[in-house]
Amino acid sequence: MVTTTGLELLDVTLLSLYVSGMATILGSAVGIPLGALIGLKEFGGKGAIKTITYTLYGFPPVLSGLFVYFLFSRSGPFGDFGILFTPTAMIIAETFLVIPLVTGITITSVVEVDKNIKETVRAMGASSRQSTLTVMREAWVGLLMACMVGFGRVIAEVGAAYLVGGNIDGKTRVLTTAIMLETRMGNFEWAMALGAVLLAVALCVFLFLRLLQEREML
């Protein structure tokens, strides 16, 4: 009934991967050092910061979208960049969603590793910098896990992507917003089919990341 050009489905899928991938990389670039800092350094108010981080796990995506919308709207402070309704705006909104997750999971994994090897490393006379590096290396599996959870959150996210992307055909339409559109139009079968594509994409990404984890464990 519908004449599909597979190329356009590919377009939507690739954009989903691009937006979620970039958001995961950027979010991890911020979240991992931040998490390591919070996890390994001793300072006052640490408990409060951890609690806030964990609270932000529940940050509503559409709120992140609204926030970025107000920043980059023409009447907002960065309106002149003209990046609203582009993949860039979507990446920024999604990055805000990745950061707390990656930070939180990083904290947990480095603290866990730190407990086990701190004494050993110190006993061997390592400097504080060396011991931090060792901890991070040992926490690799957990850090990868943090990235995976972050990626999982944004590839499945629809609220922010719709708000700051606009779901423009051929430009900012990603798998989730396409699913939403098809559902709204009553094409439930198509929506399910697209959902299957999304899961298949996620499967490929996670298989790849798992492979990295496993090799490290050996």
């Binding site: 009934m1 519908v2 004449t3 599909t4 050009t5 356009e8 489905l9 377009d11 939507v12 055909d169 051929g170 339409r173 396409a178 699913i179 559109l181 098809e182 139009m185 094409n187 198509w190 697209l194």
Partner: peptide, 13 residues
């Protein structure tokens, strides 16, 4: 009539 369901980057003839 039948060929509308568009979207998802799926072009309709």
């Amino acid at each position: 009539g039948v060929s509308i369901p568009v979207a998802a980057g799926l072009k309709v003839e």
